[in-house]
Design a binder for these strands. Structure first.
Lengths: 110, 110
DNA sequence: CTGCATCCTTCGGGATACTG
DNA sequence: CAGTATCCCGAAGGATGCAG
């Protein structure tokens, strides 16, 4: 019989990385803004708090999806970009966006 | 300036439907088992509890992704299948699975 | 076999204030 | 400007028992 668990279902692994309320939208934002500054993200990603933004960015960094460049300036400046590996998410983001649009269309009719 | 919120970012809509701990894996399981019986899913989706399974299936049904067919038999029998709309998730599931594999490969090297 | 109700726990997410 | 440190809450997730 087929079995679906964390080991045999890679879908789960992806969802862990992209899951939660902010990860996907952040990847998307950085992808379209690159390089993205911290304050810039804070302004463009509506509703996210500073602490959440910091936390989520760290987790994405730990997963190797984004890289963080610190400029030793006053005032401080930090830029985020997708890593090469993070860029491999592009097709997924694209299909997620497309499907989201289709889903909305469907909901509207109802 | 670009803005990323729930209205302008369809990715978010998709993640709401596919988010949480079980949705994606359930879609995947039903896709590969169709038609899938309740008990069958309970056995194949490792770690899920009965109540969670029921709840998640209902939500997927409400979103129009799966359909539920009840057989008036003793013992009871219920079958779940992806709806036509649910099937449009197939390419996403595929890319999620592929990326998950790549992610694992990368983690192994580290 | 399938499903609901109840109760409980965990943790993701958030508000606020403070720092270099 | 970018980030940390606390404290807090609600919802997601889970265990268990009962029912058709």
């Amino acid at each position: 019989m087929l079995v679906f668990d964390e080991k045999s279902c890679p879908v789960t692994a992806t969802m862990k990385v992209l899951g939660g309320k902010w990860k996907a939208i952040l990847i998307n934002a950085i992808y379209h803004t690159s390089p993205a500054r911290f304050g810039e993200l804070k302004r463009s990603v509506k509703g996210i708090t500073q602490s959440m933004l910091t936390q989520q960015l760290r987790e994405l960094e730990d997963d190797g999806l984004i890289s963080r460049k610190i400029y030793a300036e006053i005032p401080p400046k930090v830029e985020y970009t997708l890593t090469e590996f993070g860029l491999t998410l592009a097709p997924i983001m694209q299909s997620l966006a497309n499907w989201g649009l289709a889903y909305r269309m469907k909901k509207q009719k109802e």
